[in-house]
Design a protein around this nucleic acid. Sequence first.
RNA 1: GGAGUUAUAGCUCAAUUGGUUAGAGCGCCGCCCUGUCACGGCGGAGGUUGCGGGUUCGAGCCCCGUUAACUCCGCCA
Length: 587
Amino acid sequence: MYRTHHCNQLRAADVGQTVELSGWVASRRDHGGVIFIDLRDREGITQIVFRPESYPDVAKEAHSLHDEDVIRIEGKVVPRLEGTANPKLPTGEIEVVVSGLTILNQCAPLPFQLDANLSNEDLRLTYRYLDLRRPAMVRQLKARHILNRTTRNYLDREGFLEIETPILSKSTPEGAREFLVPSRVMPGLFYALAQSPQQYKQLLMVAGAERYFQIAKCFRDEDPRADRITELTQIDIEASFTTQEDIFRLVEGLLKEIFAATREVTIPTPFPRLTYQEAMDRFGSDKPDLRFGTELVNLSETFRNSQFKVFRAALDQKGVVKAINAKGFANITTGQIEEVTNLAKQAGAKGLAFIKVENGEWKSPIVKFFSESERKSLTEKMGIEEGDLILFGADSWETVCIVLGRLRLKVAEFTKLITDPDELKFLWVTDFPLMSFDPAENKWNAMHHPFTRPKTEDIPSLEQGEFGKVRAVAYDVVLNGVEIGGGSLRIHESDLQQKVFSALGISEAQQKRLFQHLMSAFSFGAPPHGGIALGIDRLLMIITGTANIRDVIAFPKNSRGQDLMMDAPAEVTERQLRDLSLAVRRA
RNA sequence: GGAGUUAUAGCUCAAUUGGUUAGAGCGCCGCCCUGUCACGGCGGAGGUUGCGGGUUCGAGCCCCGUUAACUCCGCCA
């Protein structure tokens, strides 16, 4: 037997028991005579004591122990001596006097220390199995386990079946770049790794599964970010005979249980809702962070007849003038002004107009163009007070919203508008546009995916070719400015699906080649259906309060998609390539 | 594809305006230590300052190039 208890189990009530423990040496405090060791396993730490006067042979062997050696001990639980209890440990009232020691395995000198400052991430990822021994990382693994368990229990109770779908699938033109996998049996042909189970889950609805979910791995061959990784996990949900309201209620209930189980907080439901239009107009983002205000204010009427050419020109071209008030940020430094100006330009602005309100004076190169009534209207609409900084955008509605939305986030960061690190602000963003125009490709792309249902009242616009006016029954769930999930009601009629494909520039020949299975499935009595997918990794980032998606994944890839521990991707042999009928072209 | 930040001992970091032998803490090795909990004390080993070039009497520090990591933009239905 290796253990009778784990290392976070023994308490004062267990005093007198003879126990066995196994684990790693987390810390050795060798006084020459008595030796203390913090013995660590997955659950926690128990102090064990070697007393030479009681067990001289065992104590002698303990002198040679090192950090991270793996040992098994037996001994007696005793209360700690008067005044030596450790209130920092749940097991701190007791210790185990060791009468028997087995060294199960020794540890070589470590490449980095587990108890010290975090080492550089390369090293942590290379030796991830050591990094994961840190209690903080164990907490991450447990949080994911609890989230998954809660999800399964909840969706089971709601009548959902967990059904697995293929990872090896077929390449489709829309969406993220895919990882390709060559077929050995059929030379020259390729699978694609599923970027989501989207089509399978819709086909399951046609199959009459009615309520499906899956904790699904998805693969996207795009450049990673701090909150994006090539290999991600989603709670994938689809239901038949469902409405947007049904899905909102389901997901709100799920998130309520997840946050109760992982963070022990009660989140208020239902979540507030904004349409895409409102979200962009007021917050300059389709995933607004509602933990602070600083809303975008429309000033188009104020400057309708302005002498300031930049504003006037934007308005004359049917654009808008909007602004945000960075309260109390008039003391912005020159360097910060430069930074926000660059940010504005990056987001599509031609420049950045601003007003600093200092000592009762408006300090700005543009104020001289403003009339008395314009100043008055501006003061009123923006609620201008001493110490404020007003940042303007004048351009097309979309550009202005995007620019000011980015500035809003930057201002919040500079002026520390988020004060409570535990605050959770959920919302639904609804009525997304069905399609967006890509000037680079000169074509319309699906905003969500090509199977998204247009709003019934907007179908005439679709038929008339006014694609920009068509809204979708598509929705995102947003938490603290992070898109944690998105979904839609789907098209279940082959003729409507065909119209959308055509609008997206997918020819009939392509439709047949790529989506024949869907088109024919829809012709055999497909029920109305819809669903959503929630990003587990991003959700866990917020639950555990980390800024890096790799912290919530046991074995993550780095920002170039490498697994530093396994050293993947790696070269393969000529023989393997030959079997796959592949040749590598080297530069 | 573009931009920014970073790179010094096994790890985390220092090193004044360019100045002589590049330091500290932790870890490692040796010795000492019977109530610690980041135990403590004494001693020791350990460096091509990412790599290549340049400027200079002299470069960890300045310049150019390059590589890598991270972050951001593009991209991510």
